[in-house]
Write a protein that binds this DNA or RNA. Structure first.
Lengths: 212, 212
DNA sequence: TGATATTCTACCTTTGTGGGTAGTATATCT
DNA sequence: AGATATACTACCCACAAAGGTAGAATATCA
């Protein structure tokens, strides 16, 4: 039996989902909540296998809720159901521990399939969300703006991120310390920063530095 | 018409896919290659809509190939088909520009569906891959080891990543410069680093610092 | 051929950083 | 009451970093 908890403030959506899910033989809807606050205290949240979670909730948001629930019940599979599809909602939810992200317009059948998929080890997502997520991994391509680094600059930035001193970098790439400095100046200018730490930070955000 | 290019060194897989895809009315397989080297020179690669790409290729690997193809033809949708499912293969491919990742055991029907999904703006993935990808976004939970930072340390690390000086940080969090230093020492110790840049780098990798 | 850009080297100065050491106030534990 | 840990503050020092300026070598372009 798959034990499900639903947190959704809209009563129509809430009951619609419940009826849909209850029609499945191997599904049990443990409890319904209209806010994260109520759910946090409950026993259901600790025992359930799947949590369907709305993002736009009054009080504690779905994203904050996801973080809390995933720490209360590490085994629960959290699936967000949202009308939002902005980066902040999507990636915020994923960081918070969600393993799926559906649009609120899902049909009852899709919802049921999604839950089964999640239980089987998959990650239900609408196609557009999936694309967005995968695209977030793509390296930035050289753009027509002048803020893309040369190969040498990228190398140096990587070495900077490893905390190496100018001197060590100079030794590694066979340049004088000032030669290294010359490139670092360009890096800072291109990234609009004024220190190593900022450069590393930005380099990672721009995916110039690998995140692995 | 959806124009497809296949790059796969195994002749059986290659021809099997071709026959499967050719049976679809709106699919055209432009050309088949057994290596990236051959494909790079071709006209097909520039004109196609979808590239099916094996990872384990002799010479230029599928991952390197994906990077090259995505720069040659920015519109092409690159779908990896691989027997590997290790992190390096998956995330390497995604960084290189792939928008889908299938296991080599896909059935002809799944392959056809995957291509249609990709064209429609989705990202075909096997469920396990999707879960792996989503999980990679999850924040690290405080672990029982002692390498997790206190709230104050996290705040300071964030400020460090913004390139702020000890003095500025001290002002912002109402501490003396040496007070800030005290915490930074702990941060470095916990992260096993010896400089800001390294700390920022590690902080991001450990997802202590947000990647957004 | 002269003008220009690129890449690198050199030197100088101020400020920042990392690490060593030490002392204080507070709270916790025994 | 004494031992211990935590969270600071304080001072010192050597070195690294950031930025300013300037000049040489080379290649590119007009």
């Amino acid at each position: 039996m798959i034990k499900i908890t639903i947190i959704e403030d809209n009563i129509f959506a809430r009951t619609a989902w419940e009826t849909a899910l209850s029609s499945e033989e191997d599904f049990v809807v443990l409890e319904l909540f209209s806010s994260c606050e109520e759910a946090i205290e409950s026993e259901s949240i600790k025992k359930c296998d799947v949590i369907l979670l709305d993002i736009g909730l009054p009080g504690i948001s779905g994203i904050e809720g996801a973080e809390i629930f995933s720490s209360i019940n590490t085994n629960a599979l959290i699936i967000m159901i949202s009308i939002q599809d902005d980066d902040k909602s999507i990636f915020g939810s994923l960081q918070a521990g969600a393993i799926g992200y559906l649009h609120k317009s899902v049909s009852p059948e899709e919802l049921i399939d999604s839950i089964r998929l999640a239980v089987k080890g998959g990650s239900p997502m609408t196609p557009q969300i999936a694309r967005k997520v995968l695209k977030s991994f793509h390296k930035f391509k050289p753009r027509y703006t002048e803020d893309n680094l040369t190969e040498k600059e990228t190398t140096i930035l990587t070495l900077l991120s490893e905390g190496k001193s100018y001197k060590k970098i100079a030794e590694e790439i066979f340049l004088s310390v000032d030669g290294v400095k010359y490139h670092i100046r360009s890096i800072y200018e291109k990234l609009h920063v004024h220190s190593r730490a900022e450069a590393v930070n930005k380099g990672q955000k721009l995916r110039i530095l690998s995140k692995l």
